[in-house]
């Protein structure tokens, strides 16, 4: 089951660049939430603050509160613990090229010391089925490298890898932007399936995609969260003039 995320007074910097300013946001559990906005608006930075990935950059800094399931991830948790609970899928598929498909999916469990062969087999199969990749790879799980798959398959492999550690929240940073329309459709179907079990936050440049997969949408502009509402409301009757300009294509 997914959990909700409560964000209050979140600020983030890259060096002197104040890239996220005073973000307040409640992300509901077991829903898909889309984050849209022009390039450089801070939506990816925001996403990376939710699993403390932002701070891996030595010049980055974060202040504020992020409560995941009522636990303040900055005050009461370590980055390692939080990333075991919050999965992430990146913009460009990044399977581990030196590992087989099986080992890619099992990597999260293996590195945390999980050894039971039988359970690993089960988890790998379940995760690959969830990410709709099982039928395409089941015959050469241990023969083929993760990098030998096509781009769309690689991205679904990365989703399976993230699902294998059974996270409560799934962060997706433009997961389909490097893929062709058919692969994109598969990923979107997948998100639609997964949101019954996980809380999904997805950054996207594609507004139709946001409309198709997410119940709620947030619009970011220049480091600020301009508007957050149900996706239907955002795309039909936004409160803010800037949101309207963006979704109708007048800028951005």
């Amino acid at each position: 089951m997914g959990v909700g995320i409560k964000i209050s007074d979140l600020n983030a910097w890259y060096g002197t660049n104040h890239s996220l300013q005073e973000i307040q946001l409640d992300i509901p559990a077991n829903h898909a939430t889309a984050l849209i906005g022009p390039s450089g608006c801070g939506k990816s930075t925001f996403l990376r603050c939710l699993n403390r990935m932002h701070e891996t950059n030595p010049i980055a800094r974060v202040t504020g509160k992020v409560l995941i399931n009522e636990v303040d991830i900055y005050a009461e948790s370590s980055p390692v613990e939080i990333r075991r609970r919050v999965g992430m899928v990146f913009q460009r598929p990044n399977p581990f090229p030196t590992m087989s498909i099986y080992d890619n999916v099992a990597s999260g469990l293996k590195l945390n010391g999980f050894r039971s062969r039988r359970v690993l087999d089960e988890v790998v199969e379940r995760s690959l089925r969830q990410s709709a990749l099982w039928d395409e790879v089941k015959d050469d799980l241990k023969k083929k490298s993760g990098a030998s798959l096509s781009g769309g398959q690689q991205q679904r492999l990365c989703i399976a890898r993230a699902l294998a550690v059974d996270p409560e929240v799934m962060l997706m940073d433009e997961p389909a932007s490097a893929l062709d329309p058919i692969s994109t459709a598969k990923i979107e179907d997948l998100i639609f399936e997964l949101k019954s079990q996980y809380t999904i936050v997805i950054v996207t440049h594609n507004m139709q995609q946001a409309a198709r997969v997410a119940e709620n949408t947030g619009f970011f502009l220049m480091g600020k969260l301009v508007e957050f509402d149900s996706t239907h409301k955002i795309f039909t009757n936004p409160r803010d003039k800037r949101t309207e300009d963006y979704i109708t294509g007048r800028f951005g």
Binding site: M53, R83, F90, N94, P95, F96, G108, L111, A162
Partner: peptide
Amino acid sequence: VQREGVLALGA
């Protein structure tokens, strides 16, 4: 992205 991929798994 390879480093981040591993970190994101809780490494």
